[in-house]
Write a protein that binds this DNA or RNA. Structure first.
Lengths: 348, 348
DNA sequence: CACTTCACGCGAACCGGTTCGACAACCGAT
DNA sequence: ATCGGTTGTCGAACCGGTTCGCGTGAAGTG
């Protein structure tokens, strides 16, 4: 079942078999066919380990995703799926690595033991040890997300700042003056998670530009937290008429909280944000949102990484995406119900 | 950076370095420390490819998941995440393979090129080529799901039949007499997808036992399809008062369809089914459902596979799980609103 | 003091491919 | 007949580990 066996049966040398299969040197049509027949008969396939050892390439990409214990969001699934598919199109396999903090065990495995030719990093933080580490090593990698100083790096990212700004402007245009921002969990914000930071930045900036009264909240990645968060928002400022969120996992809970408080979406309360399209369509009314093009981002990341692998000294490239806001049904003009009705919640 | 380099610097032979690091033969404390110092200084890590070639084990598990183009569900994400985590605990990496149909390219890569020591299969069909193929090859694998004849195989599965039966009984106990079943997409049912079949079987059986009037539907894996499906259900039999579903991606759409038709959950209409707990808690009212313990299943699958790898001729084992129904808020007694009100939908 | 025993370390072979340099056979051109 | 250039094939070295068998020096024993 190894190349020697094939060579013996075909009556040629091992190197000839190798050349016949790889085509890296001409082989006469006759011996090529002879070899091919033996290969087909035995169903021979060259061992990936041996090949990797010999030519130093594993044909495998590493996909580094967030630390264990975190909730996984739907977006992450879309990244994973699209990365795997895109990689397969280039004849690469994908090795999953549950790495979070820098220099942890499985991260070491990928690089130190040379299991992968390149890596794609998810869940980027503004100051990211992993990115620094990889770039110091000049190890081919592409980040899905963008650090504080992304110059000279390879990445594909979403312009969360601009997207959230647009959401705020959209709401302001509709007449909303008191808006809340529902961010990802505080722990993520504290550790410098990119989208949480840039989203917040965009929110603050746009709110200032429009002179809005705003509050910002962190919210756990689950429905219950979303519900609690809405309770806090309406308690802190019952006159709030809209919110912007990045937290797709909490979305259902946000809606529930609003319903419980007797706020009808979009009549008395508008909701918008940046979430995957699939989630935006799951809630009722469907969410007006900038749809995260996760599948496209995964594909682009693989494209970049493969390019970087094929041309080791190509200049750094990146893609910054700014998908448009999809108008659905969760936002509407402010003041359909007068602002005066703010004393107590109408429902328990 | 290879073992020869370490040996040279430590002034010993390559084999001694190998033994010192693996501990497979005793090495004097002194030389061991000498070697360890050099290793630490240079940050040496043995090449995975070379090791794999030498000892025939890749320390990698394959995770075979559904064909491209499918929507991925939240459940699948939970499987992937828990498998990766559990594998890491055993010092295995996980290689993702987007294989669907049998003997397709990437499936061949995993096995033919010996990239993995064992495989975990997801999205099992009752007659599954991949399972047959692997068991014919005696290749170590564990299925998440159970074929029509699972005897002698390694798997971890959910007793969809029993779970859906329980859902039906739960509804029947509440007085519901006309119940619909919302299955996964027709294409999955047609190709023999396990959960769709067994779920349907359990539904039919329990409905017969309780003498219920039922209809069964297939529904696409997205919110819009869910909404459309509810419209069909209420059109086909406006007296329907409850539904059971396996389709978590459609859940939001089902709720929307009911709301649009003016049916309040759970006052005029009960909903239940088998979905991941996270999803059940996202909708409002929260879904009374048998929560799919996806994370546990992934972990168990890895446990089984590792056991099988460590003891090549251990007898086949499996786990059939039957999680309890979590009572939440989406089911209630039938007839809170009289059955007579069935002429036309009250809302558009 | 010679004789086993044991702990330790070494060299060589091997895993299964790839790749380089050499060489033989054949071609047409001088 | 000789020479230069192809074309097709082979042998050997190499990738970076693991593992087996053997040799050696020190310790233990009668």
């Amino acid at each position: 079942m190894n190349i020697g066996e094939i060579a013996r049966r075909a009556g040629v040398s091992r190197s000839t078999v190798s050349y016949a299969l790889s085509g890296k040197r001409p082989v006469s049509e006759e011996t090529r066919r002879k070899i091919q027949r033996v290969v087909d008969e035995l169903g021979y396939r060259p061992s990936a380990s041996a090949r990797a050892l010999a030519n130093g390439r594993t044909s495998t990409l590493g996909l580094v995703f967030p630390p264990a214990g975190n909730h996984y969001t739907g977006m992450q699934l879309d990244f994973i799926g699209s990365v795997v598919e895109a990689a397969a199109a280039y004849d690469y396999d994908v090795l999953l690595s549950p790495s979070g903090v820098d220099s942890d065990r499985s991260f070491q495995r990928l690089l130190g033991e040379r299991r992968v030719d390149g890596a794609i990093l998810m869940e980027i933080r503004l100051e990211d040890d992993r990115v620094d580490h990889l770039s110091a090593l000049a190890f081919p990698s592409v980040a899905i997300g963008r650090t504080a100083r992304p110059e000279g790096a390879w990445w594909v990212g979403l312009d969360h700042t601009a997207l959230v700004e647009r959401c705020v402007h959209h709401l302001a245009d509709l007449g909303h003056r008191r808006i809340a921002f529902v961010n990802r969990p505080e722990q993520l914000l504290r550790t410098g998670y990119e989208s949480a930071h840039r989203g917040l930045e965009g929110f603050t900036k746009a709110a200032a530009e429009r002179g809005l009264t705003v509050r910002t909240y962190c919210c756990g990645d689950d429905a219950d937290s979303g519900q609690t968060c809405v309770e806090r928002i309406l308690h802190d400022d019952p006159a709030t008429t809209a919110l912007v969120t990045l937290n797709e996992a909490a979305l259902g809970g946000l809606y529930r909280g609003l319903a419980r408080a007797g706020r009808h979406v979009p009549r008395d309360f508008s909701v918008t944000g940046v979430v995957a399209g699939r989630w935006a369509e799951t809630v009722t009314p469907q969410l007006t949102a900038a749809d995260v093009p996760a599948a496209e981002m995964g594909r682009l990341a693989v494209d970049l990484l493969v390019e970087r692998l094929d041309h080791p000294d190509a200049p750094p490239r990146h893609h910054l995406l700014t998908p448009p806001i999809s108008l659905r049904a969760s936002t509407g003009p402010a003041g359909a119900r007068p602002d005066t009705d703010t004393g107590t919640d109408t429902a328990r």
